[in-house]
Computed example of a mutant assay.
Amino acid sequence: MNDLRGDAERSARFAGRAIIVTGAASGIGRACALRLASEGADIVAVDLDAAGLTALVDEIAATGRLCERLEGSVVDLGLMDAAIERAVTRFGRLDGLVNNAGIGGPMGRFDRSTPDDFDQMIAVNLRSVWYGTKAARAPMIASGGGSILNVSSMAGLVPNRHHSLYGMTKAAVISLTHHAAMDYAGDGIRVNALCPGPVETPIFEQMRSNLGDDAFESARRQLIRRTLLGRFGQAAEQAAAAAFLLSSEASFITGIALPVDGGWSISDGQTATRPSAPD
């Protein structure tokens, strides 16, 4: 059955919905919060960045929607409990969750990572996603169902040299998504993962301090060469895919890991060529 919706209907597809977004002050999380609000959702925004949250609240207010802010680290599992409580008490329900908060972590050979590196990456990139997905179940059931989106990465699908801890946690997020989707299907809750490719976000910029300017620019050029569409993606493009997966338009989709990577994950490493104009 075709469901060809006009812009006006699509712009209200989250009307009356309450959605939590972690890592909401910048990058993909910010783009998701703004996109969802523009389509009618009220947002609970979670992040460490107080100034970024303040700016986000103001921008969402300009759309006519509401945004509650919670400042803190997702390593503190109580922060997710507080976010859920805020959604339920302020908006009366919880319909969606975007587990987006994450860190890039250290880069280097596999054997050079430390137990402290390992513990931090697990705490931020995996444990928080596990807990958010777990804690959201009951309030979503009370709201009649819902949708959870866990932000993984292309690095969770294809190994990235010298980025083992990051890739490991992002691969685990995909497995977590699969298992939660199986267990939550009977509750009317869909669980999917988004796998962004190269996008210019604060996490990607962390590589500059890890690698140095020259190595960073070289890595950036290599990523572009490998990406079939020949460019970095934009956070807004990730948010568009996220909004689709969270919406009722994706009502028969659960348990997938969707690459939004410009073809990076299927590339053979050859530089993309553009067809010449016909004679």
Rank of each mutant, 00 (worst) to 15 (best):
R30K: 11
I60C: 07
G233R: 09
V75M: 06
A62R: 15
I203L: 15
G269H: 03
E200Y: 11
A171S: 15
A185M: 05
R93V: 04
A181N: 09
R35D: 11
A181D: 08
N99H: 00
W130E: 04
P106I: 03
V98T: 01
G212R: 07
A257G: 02
G263A: 06
A37Q: 03
L48I: 14
V173A: 06
G269L: 03
G146I: 07
G262S: 02
L149I: 06
G16L: 06
F14V: 06
T89Q: 12
T227W: 09
E9T: 13
G40K: 09
S276L: 10
T169Q: 13
P202S: 05
F91W: 04
G262D: 01
L48R: 15
N150V: 05
R137Y: 06
D111I: 08
F118L: 14
C32I: 10
I43T: 12
L77S: 04
V124S: 04
A239G: 08
G233W: 08
V129Y: 07
A239L: 11
G144E: 07
F204S: 11
G145F: 02
G40P: 14
F252D: 00
F232I: 10
A24M: 04
I203E: 09
L246Y: 02
R137A: 15
T273F: 01
H163G: 02
R274S: 07
R5T: 12
R112N: 05
